[in-house]
Amino acid sequence: MKKSLVLTCLVLSILSLQSCDFSKRIDTTAAVKEMKSRQVKRILPQDITNKADTWGQEVQAMIESPSNKLSLDSIAKQFQIRIQSGKAINLKQQNKDKKIQEVLDALEYSLSMNQEIPPSIQKNTSGDSLFYIFIHKKQDVILLGFSKSQIVLNIDKPLIK
């Protein structure tokens, strides 16, 4: 009786082990990496603003570089942004956004008072775009318009939490 019970257990364990296919074992480190890559990421508003500032500085350096041979249109296509350049009063007429018009009014006043104006980041009224604004050497105001959705698509992966 004992022999038959042991033999039955042995046969059942061999059959159960044979049904296991160890060749399809999952590599856990690869699975963890894939799960992290598919994980929903959170991008903070400050991350978007920082990226727009970084891009704005890059574009500003490119525009102000004496070795720059590119036109503003080709730079705009390269970075997928909108670039407007000119006197503050002319740009104010081109922009319908009330907040940007107020910023351009302030810039016009500051330029008339010969004040030093550092580059700045401004949001439009609806908040869906950011504008990097700086004064070019010729006293022209340059607006670099960044769409928030475009920034999110191109944001650096290490910045995403």
Rank of each mutant, 00 (worst) to 15 (best):
K33C: 03
K33Y: 05
M35V: 11
M35I: 12
M35N: 10
K36I: 14
K36P: 08
S37W: 12
Q39Y: 12
K41M: 06
K41D: 03
K41F: 06
R42A: 10
R42F: 06
L44T: 11
P45E: 07
P45F: 05
Q46T: 13
D47C: 02
D47T: 13
I48N: 00
T49K: 08
N50R: 01
N50D: 13
A52P: 03
W55L: 09
Q57S: 14
E58Y: 14
E58M: 12
E58C: 12
E58W: 10
M62W: 05
E64R: 14
P66L: 12
N68C: 13
K69T: 09
K69M: 04
L70V: 14
L70P: 08
D73V: 14
I75Q: 04
A76C: 05
A76K: 09
A76I: 05
K77A: 07
K77C: 04
Q78V: 08
Q78D: 15
Q78L: 15
F79N: 00
R82Y: 12
I83P: 05
S85M: 11
S85G: 02
G86F: 04
G86Q: 03
G86M: 05
K87R: 13
K87A: 12
A88W: 03
I89F: 00
N90A: 07
L91P: 04
K92M: 00
Q93S: 10
Q94F: 05
Q94I: 14
Q94R: 05
N95I: 15
K98V: 15
K99I: 03
K99D: 02
I100F: 01
I100R: 04
E102W: 06
V103M: 00
V103S: 07
L104K: 06
L104M: 07
E108S: 07
S112N: 08
S112Q: 03
M113F: 02
M113S: 13
N114F: 02
E116K: 09
P118N: 00
P118M: 06
P118A: 13
P119Q: 03
P119T: 10
P119M: 09
S120K: 03
S120T: 11
I121K: 01
